[in-house]
Amino acid sequence: MSAQPMHIHPYERNWMVFSAVMLVLFATAVSVAAFGMGIQVPAPEQRVDPRIVATDPNSPWSNPGLREVSPGKYDAYILAHAIPVWEYLPKEITVPAGSSVSFYVTSSDVQHGFKIQDTNANFMVIPGQVSKLTIKFNKPGTYNYICTEYCGSGHGIMYGAIIVTP
């Protein structure tokens, strides 16, 4: 063993410099995407009690569905559950093209996922937590939202749809 500084072959040194540069490039690209392009990930929003979130009359998820907050702006309260059957409530939402919808999704039993096909919305639904994300729907069409986390035998049939009308 040597008490000298490490001996590095020149090829190796070049390679390490190259790696470091690549690393900085990647990190910058991701940072730009995260901050500059307004990429959203769910953030701590609100804690709820999963045992009563679907039944407590004060909980918006006791009456899940769409609320218009201002013209073209909506809040969608969505409940995911496996009991009594695997489904989202509501199963279907209709909004006009150009609408911006803020989704507030929670679960009254196990973990679920929530992925709206052909959009950037894709997040976990965890009992006790509320997942929030805002999506703007410009193109008319049907956008399925599907469950992306194993939630029991019916996981594969759990989905709903957003219908964007022209």
Partner: peptide, 22 residues
């Protein structure tokens, strides 16, 4: 994409994840 973790920390972990590239 977990709701209960602050995005700042997610970002910090993402930077550390990239550093394993080295």
């Amino acid at each position: 994409v977990d709701p209960g973790i602050p995005p700042v920390w997610k970002f910090i972990h993402s930077m550390l994840t990239f550093s394993v590239f080295f």
